[in-house]
């Protein structure tokens, strides 16, 4: 029983991390119909930024994290401005190839700047490593921290999207760019804002990821990025609440399958991919959205 509870907590934790990354994917895809391959790499850069703020500039850990997250937002902003904006009216495949190129570029740049060897991410206070015991359940303080931040951010984003004017504009652009610009919204600014928010959320998730598996390396963004994309597809790409639910479904599945079939641990990543493929085959629009016809 406590085994199950432990797994449920871990699943929620992993799911929350996926959900934060998936939001960026799904918002960008919803607006630009572009799989932002570089999303996972922006996450990785955010983690490095935070690490160096703390190590090199000796900021306190919390300030380092915040500055790292903001810088990641700036990076996302510049990537969109430099690479994606010129290709907005190009064939979608060109934009996708460029996104792959950006991803490759950010990874190589990280190798050059930070070195290819994994670095330890032990820059958070030791307090987080403390373990609390609730009848047989051993929970790290870090878990509470991550869960807390995740839920605050998730609700924050949903509030922003559904309760503010900017959020309404973002959702409107996702349905129809030309009409929304006619209504007086500045499309470029809103797209920039989308990239900034998405990148900051991803960086937050990345930093918490690095706290949990305390290391950082230039390719760390690839697998979480891909998984988060899968989470976005599960929830119906383009839908933010869908991405959040998708993230939790994916995280929970992974943890539970490995938790109850430990000898499948080597195949852990395969589950996500199989879910993706099965879903694309039978319900490419995700499990929540309704099917929409394409005009011929």
């Amino acid at each position: 029983m406590s085994h199950l509870a432990q797994n449920l907590i871990n699943g929620t934790l992993l799911g929350g991390l996926y959900a934060l990354i998936a939001i960026g994917y799904t918002m960008v895809y919803g607006i630009l119909r572009l799989i932002n391959f570089a999303h996972g790499d922006i996450l990785m850069w955010g983690v490095y930024f935070a690490l160096y703020m703390v190590i090199a500039l000796s900021m306190p850990w919390w300030l380092g994290f915040i500055v790292g997250i903001v810088l990641a937002g700036l990076l996302g902003f510049s990537v969109e401005k430099v690479a994606y904006r010129p290709l907005r009216n190009a064939p979608r495949i060109s934009a996708l190839i460029t996104a792959i190129g950006i991803s490759f570029f950010l990874e190589s740049l990280a190798v050059v700047v930070f070195g290819g060897i994994p670095k330890s991410f032990n820059i958070y206070p030791k307090f987080f490593n403390k373990i609390v015991i609730f009848n047989h359940l051993r929970i790290q303080m870090l878990t509470f921290f991550i869960l807390g931040v995740t839920f605050v951010l998730l609700f924050g984003v949903l509030w922003l999207l559904y309760r503010t004017k900017t959020g309404t504009a973002m959702r409107a652009i996702a349905t129809d760019i030309p009409t929304t610009s006619l209504m007086g919204a500045n499309v470029d600014n809103i797209i920039s804002l989308t990239f900034i928010i998405g990148s900051m959320l991803a960086a937050t998730s990345g930093i918490m990821w690095a706290m949990r598996y305390p290391q950082v390396q230039p390719y760390m963004g690839f697998v979480p990025g891909l998984k988060a994309f899968i989470a976005a597809v599960i929830g119906g790409i383009g839908s933010v609440p869908g991405a959040v639910v998708g993230g939790f479904i994916l995280g929970m599945t992974e943890i539970l399958v490995v938790g109850f079939f430990p000898n499948l641990a080597g195949y852990r990543d395969v589950f996500a991919y199989v879910i993706l493929i099965v879903l694309l085959m039978f319900r490419p629009t995700g499990i929540f959205t309704v099917y929409s016809e394409q005009k011929v």
Partner: peptide, 9 residues
Amino acid sequence: PGMSMLIFA
């Protein structure tokens, strides 16, 4: 190290 990949990218 890694410079060549960066140039390619």
